[in-house]
């Protein structure tokens, strides 16, 4: 009898605990998702609705119209730069940054881990220290250098200073350190030179890590704001994050919020797609190794 009561109490407690957990999760989702929902809904109404100061919570009927305006002519009051071009620019920039960083990091991590050369550790620490010097810190000298090299308004100038960093080098170094020496020795006996070993054995083993790094770095590149703002002033080369900010007029300007929201949705989509499509690899790369 007593036990039956205890069991019922335990069950009730369990149910209450589960309910609480779900409530907390739902609250979290709400806090994160609500602004995005507002943006999404806002992009489907006409300018007047939002202009009146209403905050609609349900989608309206102007979605197609708004998105085609944003893509084809450009959002905001001025309709200056079409989002299609800016999306392309952002994609090129993000891919160059992610690809460049991965290529450079793989090679430098390879050198630091697998070769014995003078000042090896000094080289490693020099690379490591660049972690403390992101573009924002060295922005004036970097700007000077890029302008002097005549790389203003070019993809080279846009991506090169962002490529040089240590994050990915560190990750790849840690991964390479876990690769047993025997692979290197077996490859040596098989007659594989350093580059062959890198291509035939190290790269295939690093695929999941490269994918994980690719996701992180693509988003890092896509979200760049300060540097593109400085180095690009040609409208046709504008990236979407910078373009979006420029669309919003300041002061008393009457903003065309619906197309701005549509542009914001467009700007958010590619990183989301990358995460969704590569997430299986991403998780694999961060959690397991093929050995």
């Amino acid at each position: 009898m007593q036990d039956a009561v205890l069991a019922r109490q335990a069950m009730a407690r369990q149910r209450r605990g589960r309910w609480l957990a779900h409530a907390a999760l739902a609250l979290g989702v709400l806090i994160f998702a609500f602004p995005i929902w507002i943006t999404l809904v806002g992009s489907t109404h006409d300018a007047a609705t939002i202009g009146r100061g209403d905050v609609p919570l349900l989608p309206g009927g102007h979605g197609l119209e708004n998105f085609s305006t944003a893509l084809g002519e450009g959002g905001g009051r001025m309709h200056t730069t079409p989002a299609a071009g800016m999306l392309l620019n952002s994609a090129i920039m993000a891919l160059l940054i992610a690809g460049g960083k991965i290529a450079i990091s793989l090679l430098s991590a390879y050198a630091v881990v697998f070769f014995r050369f003078p000042l090896r550790m000094a080289a490693f620490w020099t690379i490591f220290i660049t972690l403390m010097l992101p573009v924002e810190v060295r922005i004036i000298p970097t700007y000077q250098v890029i302008v002097n090299l005549d790389l203003f308004n070019s993809f080279t100038g846009l991506t090169l200073p962002l490529i040089a960093s240590a994050t990915a080098t560190l990750l790849f170094r840690q991964f390479f350190l876990t690769i047993p020496d025997e692979y290197v020795e077996a490859a040596q006996l098989d007659g594989a030179g350093p580059l062959r070993f890198f291509r035939d054995i190290l790269l295939p083993l690093s695929v999941t890590n490269i994918a994980a790094m690719g996701v992180i770095l693509f988003i890092y590149g896509w979200n760049q704001y300060l540097w593109p703002l400085l180095i690009i002033n040609d409208r046709s080369m504008e990236t979407i994050v910078v373009g979006l900010a420029k669309m919003i007029g300041s002061g008393d300007t009457q903003n065309e919020w619906n197309t701005i929201m549509a542009t914001a949705v467009l700007a958010m989509t590619p990183p989301v797609l990358v995460v969704v499509l590569l997430q299986r690899w991403f998780i694999k790369g961060l959690t397991e190794t093929e050995k």
């Binding site: 077996a186 040596q188 006996l189 083993l205 093929e290």
Partner: peptide, 30 residues
């Protein structure tokens, strides 16, 4: 001489088979 130029083959304690290659590719690599 380099290991590859000595015309020798070695069996390692942990085998050191390349994990991403099939058995046939492992054997054929050298």
């Amino acid at each position: 001489l380099e290991p590859a130029d000595r015309d020798i083959a070695m069996v390692f304690q942990n085998y050191a088979l390349y994990p991403h290659m099939t058995v046939a590719q492992n054997m054929a690599y050298g």
